[in-house]
Simulated scan of single mutants.
Amino acid sequence: MTLHPFDGATALEPSGDGRWLGHTSAAYANMVGPFGGITAAQALSAVLRHPQRLGEPVALTVNFAAALEDGPFEVIAQPVRTNRSTQHWTLEIRQQGQPVLTGTAFTALRRETWAATEHAMPAVPPPAEVQPPTVGKRVEWVHRYEMRFVEGGFPSQWDGRDTGASRTRLWLRDAPPRPLDFASLTALADVFYPRIWRRRALLVPIGTVSMTVYFHAGAAQLHEAGTGYLLGQARAQAFQGGYFDQTAQLWTEGGTLLATTHQVVYYKE
């Protein structure tokens, strides 16, 4: 059986005391270093593999201190506080003895409670009625995902025009399709291209500095999603002083909100 590119990229070898060894994957290469979503997924994978883990991921925050270089790296995942139903983690990815990522995670035992979702999935055409984009793909990692833009696709002309809008809606999933889990959902939360490119149609240099993912669903709901499409929606809130933030939501085809995410991105004029 052929190993899925995502599973190859997130494979980790235990090295003792909450430490794991990994290697960057050419399949998820970005303009500089690897796709940030795969790096975040590699960090969470160390928590998911840890023998002391309690419960399922509820929140993950990663801070990109530097771009990974092609080659091996070390992930350190340590539970720093464990209560009866919750657990707090610190995360670090190191290369050549230097931190390139820091972060935290929060896991918990989920229980049945009253529930409601205020951010409902927007009404959009189903995936089969939305064609994939025909524009060229500039970086390798984009080939690892199927994207069907409902609104706000890649600009047809990079002319610097202010479009007045930053929102994108699209159907997306791993390519080739892969059953959804927490690690792959983490990477999918970072698939949205930078909102400043959507707003201005200009390829200014950018880099995500910090990203948080909130998981609103448990493993059973991710299993139900299977290899189906997710609807993603992303938009910016403010561009100022060389940084902007963007928020995003991910729903199943049936309208279940699986995750929300928020990130801060550096940009250069």
Score class of each variant (00 low, 15 high):
Leu188Asp: 10
Glu118Arg: 14
Thr168Ala: 08
Glu56Val: 15
Glu56Thr: 09
Asn83Val: 07
Ala189Glu: 03
Leu222Pro: 08
Ala43Met: 00
Phe106Gly: 00
Arg144Asn: 03
Thr260Lys: 03
Gly242Tyr: 11
Phe64Ala: 05
Thr168Met: 12
Thr208Ala: 01
Ala77Met: 03
Pro79Phe: 05
Gly152Asn: 05
Glu56Leu: 11
Pro57Glu: 12
Glu269Val: 14
Pro5Ser: 00
His4Met: 12
Ala66Pro: 13
Ser166Trp: 11
Gly232Phe: 13
Gly153Ser: 06
Trp141Ala: 05
Gly16Phe: 07
Gln157Cys: 08
Gln240Ser: 09
Leu172Thr: 14
Gly218Ser: 03
Val47Ser: 02
Thr168Val: 10
Ala183Lys: 15
Ala77Ile: 01
Ser166Asp: 08
Thr102Phe: 13
Leu203Glu: 09
Gln221Val: 06
Thr163Arg: 14
Val80Ser: 03
Gly37Arg: 10
Ala66His: 15
Thr256Asp: 09
Val124Asn: 05
Ala236Ile: 11
Phe192Gly: 02
Ala187His: 08
Met147Gln: 13
Ala225Tyr: 12
Gln87Ser: 06
Gly16Val: 05
Leu101Tyr: 08
Arg111Tyr: 05
Asp245Arg: 13
Gly164Leu: 03
Pro126Arg: 14
Tyr229Cys: 04
Pro79His: 05
Glu74Arg: 13
Leu109Ala: 10
Gln42Glu: 03
Glu129Ala: 10
His50Glu: 04
Pro79Lys: 10
Arg53Ala: 05
Leu180Arg: 11
Ala115Arg: 15
Pro51Arg: 12
Val135Glu: 02
Pro57Gly: 04
His88Ile: 06
Val209Arg: 14
